[in-house]
Design a protein around this nucleic acid. Structure first.
Length: 475
RNA sequence: GGCCCGUUGGUGAAGCGGUUAACACACAUGCCUUUCACGCAUGCAUUCACGAGUUCAAAUCUCGUACGGGUCACCA
């Protein structure tokens, strides 16, 4: 059997949202599932959208996620170069070959003329299709125009009748009417290829066997197929992926900060967890398991189980997956993804290293991403806490006040500030006030932290320090 | 507007002609740990957008309607 080769072909915009990443993940998984190769190709044929450093950015993202390309701009390969702007001569060569074969033609129409035609079509409420104005220019005319320095594009002759049919691995048989097809531009007047053209040339030249991409390409695939046909090339297997959308069912946009992989990463989400979560968007395994390492995903990933319907990107579920991975972290690793956020928000200059690590440790099972440490620990950094209604209500019931007063008297007399002694004070309070369980712990917790939930109470009190604790208890 | 795709609980989803319509997140409640959280348990779609049709039998097949989305560039 032929070796499976898939590719991830982003354009270098310096931004990767989770939808793009998801395409990369699926392409990677399919390649690896079949023991094939995963190729990274940079599609930078739009010179106006070029962004400095974007290629490194893409490479870093793939690396962080473990989606290591077998071939690509950074590590080369037998099919290079892997950056389209370095392959210009190829596109030109193939475009002209198509002209020679009578499958394409030079077009000298100006933007203005096309604008006019478009406007006219719109006024008449008919769909606009290029009118083939330049299709039958004579050799002499063409030569003369070129010698005059007139700019031109190369357009492919598309069939005007009949149907285009192809098979998609997830969407099944797709049928389109050829009369809707326009003579598509292959080479732009700046000598660069269009995406459509470069894409097909490269996929063929790089022996890509499975084309995996978002389903926004579902309707333009017939165009690609006519290119393959014009050259007599074998077409790849198409796998169009359902869209990843936001809660309004709209395409994810840059406005959603959380939808950017780098933002997630910088907020203390773990790449493994993000990959795991994203793999479950538009795909599901045969079993009911949901936590998978990359290796496991490679094993169980089955492209025929990919869904058709758009999937909503749900941060809550991502948080759950991520918290699962966070729990498996060592303290050192946890510190790594949380400490920078603490430092950024709070003044830690008077805190010992030990204190900070202890603080992070007690929240190990309480946060779902690194940056969450900030909001969850704010009670350690503000002077005054305010009680919400639920807390106030609890404080006004039973022996709550009595418990607090009793605990205050014990805790203020601790000479050696240790967790053991704090526990001891709690126990003394229990006896003195004659209450236990929730009625014992909750009043203390509320007065000390301002919250009805949180990590271990003795640790919390210990880390808060006697001054802060007695101060809060006496209010 | 033309063309294309989609529609199972708030979300991800299983389901492939006969099931009590899995499972997970979220949510709610309870239990447990001398609090909370963690963990555990329970609950959460009398029904699969809607309407017809085929069939002994439909979430599953067919058609239509509605709604949502995508696409129609010298962008990718």
């Amino acid at each position: 059997m032929m070796e499976v080769r898939t590719r991830f072909a982003p354009s270098p915009t310096g931004f990767m949202h989770v939808g793009n990443l998801r395409s990369a993940i699926f392409a990677y998984l399919i390649a690896k599932h079949y023991n094939g190769k995963f190729i990274l190709r940079i599609e930078d044929t739009d010179q106006t959208r070029k962004v400095e450093g974007a290629i490194d950015f893409i490479y870093n993202t793939c690396n962080l996620c473990g989606l290591i390309p077998d071939e690509g701009p950074s590590n080369g390969g037998a099919y290079g170069p892997y950056i389209q702007s370095e392959r210009l001569h190829l596109y030109q060569e193939y475009a002209h070959k198509l002209v020679e074969m009578g499958q394409a033609y030079y077009c000298f129409c100006t933007e203005e003329r096309l604008e006019e035609l478009r406007a006219k079509a719109e006024a008449n409420k008919v769909p606009f299709l290029y009118d083939r104005h330049c299709k039958n220019l004579s050799k002499e005319e063409i030569e003369q125009k070129i010698n005059n320095g007139e700019k031109y594009v190369i357009r492919q002759i598309m069939p005007k009748t009949g149907l285009s049919v192809y098979n998609d691995l997830v969407y099944g048989e797709m049928t389109f009417e050829n009369k809707l097809l326009e003579d598509q531009i292959l080479l732009k007047s700046d000598g660069y290829p269009t995406y459509n053209f470069a894409n097909v040339i490269d996929d063929h030249l790089m022996d890509i066997t499975h084309v995996i991409r978002g389903n926004e390409y579902l309707t333009s695939t017939p165009k690609y197929n006519h290119l393959y046909d014009a050259f007599g090339w074998e077409k790849p297997i198409y796998i169009h992926l359902p869209m990843v959308v936001d809660y309004d069912l709209k395409k994810l946009s840059k406005r959603h900060g959380a939808a950017s992989f780098m933002d997630l990463y910088n907020n203390g989400y773990l790449p493994e967890a993000v990959v795991n979560y994203l793999s479950l968007l538009g795909w599901s395994p045969e079993t009911t398991e949901e936590i998978f390492s990359l290796e496991e995903l490679i094993k169980v990933f089955d492209p025929s189980r990919i869904n058709k319907a758009p999937a909503v990107y749900d941060v809550k579920k991502l948080n759950w997956v991520n918290s699962h991975y966070i729990k498996k972290l060592s303290l050192d690793e946890l510190v790594k993804i949380t400490l920078p956020h603490l430092k950024e928000t709070y003044d830690l200059s008077d805190k010992s290293n030990e204190w900070i690590r202890h603080l992070i440790e007690i929240y190990h099972n309480h946060i779902s991403y690194g940056k969450e440490i900030v909001e969850v620990t704010d009670l350690f950094f503000k002077k005054d806490i305010t009680l919400d209604e639920e807390c106030l209500e609890f404080m006004n019931t039973g022996d709550s006040r009595k418990v607090v007063n009793s605990f205050y008297n014990h805790v203020k007399n601790i000479t050696d500030w240790t967790i053991e002694n704090i526990v001891d004070s709690i126990n003394k309070t229990k006896e003195e006030a004659g209450v236990k369980g929730k009625n014992l712990y909750m009043p203390i917790r509320i007065m000390v932290s301002g919250q009805m939930h949180g990590p271990e109470l003795p640790d919390t009190i210990y880390l808060l320090g006697r001054d802060a604790v007695t101060d809060r208890l006496s209010k």
